[in-house]
């Protein structure tokens, strides 16, 4: 049973706009995510994917528009949510201490050792977090986000700088998290990854969602020319 969906879904953005430095960077944007599982947010560089994630997570305030989760406005009674940045910021502590910090914020939860085991970081538990490899750092950042016991998880290009084996490890972790009923919104450029993981894809272009639908449909038969161009180009490469 997908236990957290009632608190999270639908995720709705209405008339969302974000301006900075006199430029309209986002919107007007409308988005409704009513399915559980993994939603991939795709689109070319500079489309506004990271900004949208920050808006949804409440790190920046929209210039206009509203965001709600399960019918409740973000801010009051928002679901427990976590975000993993593309470049993870790790605390200047050991791997295990990074986890226990998040765990203390959540007021308990799974044991640190179990969380580390799931991330494949048991052997590195006592190492300074910043000495981990790129792939290990990403897994630690994800594990630390999970220690916050989120109902909703935002991931910004979590595998962008990883090699294929590290990418697969990360994807296994992500799929396992989704199976526990935690809603995931995943920014990715990797069409193969979207195919492997995503249930639906929201495609962004110039600060707007131009197409949103089941993953297979978007990748194989997108309707908008922006999405077609993006996926066609990827397939040719």
């Amino acid at each position: 049973m997908r236990s957290h969906e009632a608190a999270v879904l639908p995720i709705e953005a209405r008339g969302l706009r974000y301006k900075a430095g006199g430029r309209a960077l986002i919107g007007p944007l409308d988005l409704t995510i009513s399915q559980g599982g993994i939603t991939a947010l795709m689109g070319p560089n500079g489309a506004g994917k990271s900004l949208l994630l920050r808006l949804l997570h409440g790190l920046i305030r929209p210039t206009a528009g509203t965001i709600s989760f399960s019918g409740r406005a973000a801010g009051d009674g928002a679901p427990r949510q976590a975000l993993v940045f593309q470049k993870p910021v790790l605390l200047r502590r050991s791997v295990a201490a990074n986890i226990s910090f998040a765990r203390s914020l959540a007021g308990g939860g799974e044991h640190v050792d179990d969380i580390l085991a799931e991330a494949g970081l048991t052997a590195q538990a006592r190492q300074p977090a910043r000495l981990l490899s790129g792939g290990e750092q990403q897994r630690l950042a994800l594990a630390r986000a999970m220690a916050l016991r989120p109902q909703l998880l935002f991931l910004d290009e979590p595998t962008a700088s990883l090699d294929p084996p590290a990418t697969l490890l990360m994807e296994d972790m992500i799929a396992g998290i989704a199976q526990r009923g935690i809603k995931i919104v995943l920014v990715t450029h990797d069409v193969g990854q979207a195919r492997r993981l995503a249930d639906d894809i929201a495609f962004m272009h110039q600060g707007r969602i131009v197409e949103h639908g089941p993953a297979g449909t978007l990748i194989e038969a997108a309707e908008t020319k922006e999405a077609q161009a993006f996926f066609a180009h990827r397939l040719v490469l």
Binding site: H57, A82, F85, V89, L91, R92, A102, L105, L148
Partner: peptide
């Protein structure tokens, strides 16, 4: 200077 590095993380983790 450390806060500059951590502030987004703190806000993201609702510390």
């Amino acid at each position: 200077s450390l806060e500059g590095e951590y502030s987004e993380l703190f806000r993201s983790m609702r510390v």
